[in-house]
Computed example of a mutant assay.
Amino acid sequence: MKRGVVIGKFYPLHAGHQYVIETALSKLDFLTIVVCGKRGQIVKGDVRGEWIRKIYPGVRVKVIYHNILDDDDEAWAKNTIKWIGYRPDLVFTSEYYGDHYAKLMGAVHIPVDIPRKKFPVSGTAIRNNPLSHLDYLHPVVRAYFVRRFCFVGAESVGKTTLAESLAKKFKTSWVPEYGRFYTEGRVNSKFSKWESREFEHIAKVQNSFEDELAGYANKILFCDTNSFATYVWEELLVGKGSREVEALFGRMKYDFYIVCDLDVKFKQDSVRMAKSRRKWMHKRFLDLLDKYNFRYVVVSGDFKKRLNFCEGLAREVIEDFRVNEDIL
């Protein structure tokens, strides 16, 4: 049985790394991928390891944190054997140091596209400008770097129209509201009383829905509501928000929440509540956005004014984004 190793920072994982991994998988019976992290790195080693697990389910992934000098091949070889628990037969890298590193472990080095001709990209280049290199990133990784706007507010204030219209302008994805689909499905049910477990379900699906679509977005994702809004609806329909839903919206990150103001005509439909609820809901969103210190803006005026403002803000966010503390 041939056993091997692929080791790297994967900071972030890109197409060149995947080429090395897939070459190794094609030649080995057993592979361990070692993700090397250091304290203080913006994208944590555990996050990078989870990307690889999602893309290559069943492959053994070890995440380690170290303080080994980059050019200390002997320390790297010694610790690699310790980390993976065996002496590898084959070592796969796209680095010139691979020959010496593999030899120290009694292994054979298999170089994979060292000149970077097949995938001319580096982790440094991606970190310097992630949104210009999305084509080199798997959807699982893209979802982490894509910027996100979330539209919230009371009913019938134009959230869906703005999200969908902006997605067309930017040729990107947008996220519909799962809670509305769910509500339409239960509208004729004899069980009129809402339960917290339903909102937890809605929040989980909304998060998953959003993260999947983020992987196919073009630099920015526009969300027509999110699990934070689910929490507000839970407060309204159950009487209080649950810790479970609070935890679910707490893990989602946005560049901006866009709060749509009430200065548009209310249109009733088959699932919307009474118009009288709008003021309470608008104020509740603002209060909770302040409470959780979420970054937001309020958009008012006609549709064209709102659209132009959001388009300008989105272009600023895309232009300014680099790997920095904002995405921790």
Rank of each mutant, 00 (worst) to 15 (best):
F191N: 12
E177L: 04
G153V: 01
A163S: 14
V187P: 02
F181D: 14
G158E: 10
L166C: 06
K169Q: 09
E200L: 12
G179I: 05
V175R: 00
F191R: 12
K190F: 10
E177F: 04
E184A: 00
F191E: 11
G153Y: 13
E177V: 03
W194E: 12
E184R: 00
V152D: 04
T160D: 03
A154F: 04
T160W: 00
K193Q: 14
P176K: 01
S196Q: 10
F181C: 01
A163Y: 07
R180T: 08
T161A: 14
S189Y: 08
E155C: 04
V157W: 10
K190M: 04
Y182P: 00
L162Q: 14
E198M: 02
V187A: 06
F170M: 08
T160A: 12
P176L: 01
W174I: 04
K169H: 12
S189K: 01
E155D: 13
S156C: 04
E184T: 05
G153N: 10
G179M: 03
F191H: 15
R197S: 15
S156A: 09
K169G: 03
L162H: 08
Y182M: 07
H201K: 09
K190R: 08
K159T: 12
F191D: 10
Y178N: 06
S156V: 10
S173L: 03
E164M: 10
Y182S: 08
K193F: 08
K171W: 03
R197Q: 11
S189I: 01
L166N: 08
E177H: 05
E177Q: 07
P176N: 07
P176M: 02
V175Q: 07
W174S: 03
G185Y: 12
T161W: 07
E155V: 12
W194L: 01
T172Q: 04
S165Y: 05
S192A: 13
H201F: 14
F170G: 05
S173R: 11
Y178F: 15
F170W: 10
T160C: 02
E164Q: 14
F181L: 13
P176A: 01
T161N: 06
E164P: 01
T172H: 02
F199E: 04
K159H: 11
E200P: 02
A167D: 02
E200V: 15
T172S: 14
G153D: 06
H201Y: 15
E164A: 15
E195M: 00
R186I: 15
E198W: 03
W194V: 07
L162P: 00
G185D: 09
G179V: 06
K159D: 14
E198R: 00
F181H: 04
R186W: 11
K193S: 14
